[in-house]
Structure formats: C-alpha cells, structure tokens
Design a protein around this nucleic acid. Structure first.
Length: 193
DNA sequence: CAAGAGATCATCT
DNA sequence: GATGATCTCTTGA
C-alpha cells in the first residue's frame, strides 16, 4: 500500500517521524530499488532559515509551495542530489529531506550506480541515496502518488526514534538548533556527523 | 581513525 | 560573483 496524499499533508515534523520505517520505492527502466527510510529532516515554512523556502518562492523551490505528496529534488554543491517529499497544505512551503535509506531490493543495481560494493555506504546520506536510487533533477515535481517514485506503507510498530539538530545548516541562526532530524535508533546505516 | 581540502555548478544577487 | 540541506580522497598521527 502506498502512502496517500493525506499522509503527506500532515504537519512536517510529524510526517518526518512517521516516514521512518516505511519503504522508498523507485521504479526505473534498469530495475526497481527499495529500502527502508531510516533518517529524515524537517524543513518547515518561510520562517525556517535553514529551508530553501525562507528566501521566498523561486523557480527551483516552487514545488515546496505546492500541494503535498510531490518530490522536490535539487542539486547541492554542484555534484550531489537531494530528495525531499513536500508536506503540509498547498501554499505552505515545507518538505522532509530523506537522508538515509539502507538498501533492500535492487542491491546490485545500486552497487553498479554507486561503483561501491560496501552496502553500508550505498545509501547512507542524501547524495548517496539519490545516486543509488537513480534520482536526479528531472524527478523534481513528480507525484509520489504515481508509479515511478513512491513510499510503501510498511511501518510495523512505533520505532525507537531519536531526534537531534539538523546537519549542515550552521548558517541558519537560531533555527540551526531545532531538533528536526530524526532517525531510527540502533541502526548502523545512519549518515555520518 | 580524525581532520581537512577539493570537486563543481545550479541558483540567486 | 558567491554560495551551498555533500561526498570522497588524502594526509598525518
């Protein structure tokens, strides 16, 4: 069962926690890749200086201002992609960054894309997982309720979730300390730092 | 093992 | 013209 539009429309911090434990599914001509969502970060509203939306709506960030349940993909540092899912009602800019998705299906495809054999390094980090899952800028704006990229509702029990401050947002003033990064405790695949 | 630098470019000013 | 929601490799202890 796929997560539906109303799941994504809920408050972002809550969505970020509830996404943990569900399965990201990427359907691609080369094959299907899946993995359990292990680590997320919430980026909430115009006020959040760590969020791209805080500088107002631009062509790049337009997706974040749209309805929930769409993918926001962007290029960072000239070489890496990051995957977000848009949350909250339309016109309220917010999204959840997917930071780690340890591989389940499509292991060999991921290893080939990443040119990396070590399973722990395949998708533990936002840039890594996008490469492993074959996600690039062309997928920005795609509907997560479609058949190319979606999230399977597989969450079993309330997982043991740890909350910390977000990564790489030291420039965001008071917002940098918000405990909006979430990951499942005791799992080896969490991204570094 | 930890720390530091370089790679590299879309996006906004 | 500056900058970044990162990763990898190299260096040095």
């Amino acid at each position: 069962m796929k997560l539906a539009r109303d799941f994504y429309a809920q408050p972002t911090v809550q969505a970020a926690q509830k996404l943990l434990g569900n399965y990201l599914v990427r359907v691609h001509p080369d094959g299907i890749t899946t993995g359990m969502i292990l680590e997320t970060e919430a980026y909430v509203g115009l006020e959040d200086k760590a969020s791209h939306a805080s500088r107002g709506q631009t062509p790049r960030t337009a997706v974040m201002f749209g309805p929930a349940g769409f993918a926001y993909v962007y290029v960072i540092y000239g070489m890496h992609h990051c995957l977000n899912v848009v949350t909250e009602p339309e016109a309220y800019p917010a999204a959840v960054l997917i930071r780690a998705v340890p591989p389940c299906a499509g292991l060999e495809l991921m290893q080939a894309r990443r040119r990396q054999q070590d399973i722990r390094l395949l998708a533990s980090g936002p840039g890594r997982l996008c490469q492993a899952f074959g996600i690039e800028r062309g997928l920005s704006g795609i509907d997560l309720c479609g058949d190319v990229l979606f999230i399977e509702d597989r969450r079993v029990s309330p997982a043991d979730v740890i909350a910390t401050s977000r990564i790489g947002v030291d420039y965001a003033g008071p917002w940098k300390d918000m405990p909006w990064r979430f990951y499942i405790a005791g799992h080896p695949g969490v991204s570094k730092r």
